[in-house]
Amino acid sequence: MQEEKFEIPHKYLLCGITILCFLFILISMLFENSFSFCRAITDKTIAPMQKGITKVCDFVQEKIDVWEDMQDLKSENEALKQQVEQLNLENKIYMEEQLELERLRELYQLDDQYQDYEKVGARVIGTSSMNWFDNFVIDKGSNDGIAVDMNVICGNGLVGIVTDVGPDTAVVRSIIDDASNVSAIFLNSDKLCIVQGDAKSIADGYIKVLNIPKEVEVNEGDELVTSSVSDKFLPGITIGYVEEITVDSNNLTKSAKLYPAVDFENIHEVLVITQLKQSGE
């Protein structure tokens, strides 16, 4: 680090580093995975330590949470029991409909379009650590079959998309990140809209839905899912629920607030869907 450079004046060194940085930016913009060898090194050295720290912290937090949650759980359990009974009833109705659906799908030979996706579980081992962004790092990488553009879900909602992969880690950009855009449809209509991450509004727990065509009937609480038009996101994954729909000033489109289905404050484990979206060729 500080060998033969004793003679170089600091100004020139600064210029050199500046040029080097811009070179790096350019290279990483133009070529994907151009720094993967560096990532491979950090994956082997730093990632295991991060894994350890995360494990310990999770363990401690879990123990604290257990005590806090005990009372909540009791009342919640009661409510859930009631809900289960109710759902059982509904389930029966759906079962019948499902049978009908399968019969109809066989007719149309559509059944392979909605098959279950293959998933890999992963643990969140670090955040991007910049307050401006909502990226995080998971402990599975290319060695576990993870690749760029794979969808990441948690519970029953969409979390984000893999943007960078090392051998044993991967970077996930969540849908609430300011740079994230997801095309989505409402469950009850086939009109497209855009879900846009927003560093500003997520402080209040919601992100934005833009470009909803004005003629679409939208009610508060409607569910938004990923659309089949997107070239990266698999169709039919729940994103969240809309509230406060307003007509835009251009009087052509509407926008709304979207409350994500995933609790982004507490993500510890996620599922990565190892199936990539087939982009039409």
Partner: peptide, 28 residues
């Protein structure tokens, strides 16, 4: 100064690697 500068570059590069996508801005 020189040592700080080099450390800054190294640390920034590490952060860049960790945050993915673009390599360089933090190093700078």
């Amino acid at each position: 100064q020189k040592e700080g500068m080099l450390l800054g570059f190294f640390v920034g590069f590490l952060m860049d690697l960790f945050c993915g996508e673009l390599i360089g801005p933090y190093a700078l």
